[in-house]
Write a protein that binds this DNA or RNA. Structure first.
Lengths: 158, 158
DNA sequence: TTTAATGCAAAGTGTTTGCAGGGCC
DNA sequence: GGCCCTGCAAACACTTTGCATTAAA
């Protein structure tokens, strides 16, 4: 889907809840679209938006991300490093939030597969629990990742 | 396993890394043992320890929990509500950190099953990634949990 | 003109750190 | 005596909030 289509769709989602796609919000959404593959923190988003819209305030970015999360346009997630990270929720992402987190180099890779449908059916039947979302993270190490050669900043989460 | 046995075991784990089981640390561990089924925040632990050991400082509790987490005696986890939560890691818990999180009432239930061994083998073969741990959370709702009748504080995480 | 949205600065929250004092090999 | 551990308070990092101003319908 093209950027303009996506912007338009998000615009409609906002309007249908009586919110406006202000220039600040649009700039924020554009950054999220541009960095769709990353898991940006609010600070990251702020810095990137500032390039295009230097007068934006940090609070506005936080408020925008919060709003988008409420409307399920972005997903707010948390990798335990004390900062929230934000991802556009494209349809294909739903039910595919699977991460491999390397404990040596901190690399974070997304796996796009839906492994858990069967399990979710079981939960519905055995526990009476209807799953609307899930998250699945694996911690471990890559075979190629010897601690000696692979010491990049472990904050390099993408 | 009895409390004293467990304390003794933890004592040995500490000593083997040159740490002491001080009275403050013992009081903290006792609280963790007593509330093994819960997912206590540092603040929770602090309040509970204070009952038995009123002079303890919050920083000591944080330091103790951090230390125990480093030694893998407790597990530090994060449910996205901005507070770290701590759990004693009994052997049976390893690889069984599966949670059902109800988005209506906030109830958090632990499921003790190991569903992912097969998946982890696949990750090792297909991705060259050796899994040492994982976490799996399901968000959704219980059939019995109508939003009308079930509105307890959503911070009631246990 | 009425309401929503913004920027800034201040406040808030959970957590960590510096440091002087205390206890234990 | 040296070293680890503690309590306290201050510092910290991330996030939220109050408020006066601005932009939009």
């Amino acid at each position: 889907m093209m950027v303009l289509e996506q912007l338009d769709k998000i615009n409609r989602q906002l309007r249908s809840s009586n919110y406006k796609l202000t220039p600040q919000r649009e700039a924020t959404v554009r950054v999220l679209l541009e960095y769709e593959q990353e898991h940006l923190s609010a600070e990251d988003v702020y810095m990137l938006v500032k390039d295009k819209y230097p007068d934006i305030g940090l609070a506005t970015v936080y408020r925008t991300l919060e709003l988008l999360a409420e409307l399920h346009i972005v997903e707010k997630m948390n990798f335990g490093d004390g900062v929230a990270r934000f991802d556009l929720r494209s349809e294909e992402h739903t039910h595919m939030h699977h991460h491999l987190i390397c404990t040596v180099c901190g690399a974070l890779k997304e796996i796009k597969d839906d492994w858990l449908l069967e399990l979710e059916n079981r939960l519905q039947q055995e526990y009476g629990f209807k799953v609307t979302d899930h998250r699945l993270d694996f911690m471990g190490t890559y075979h190629t990742c010897k601690s000696s050669e692979c010491k990049r900043a472990s904050k390099a989460i993408s």
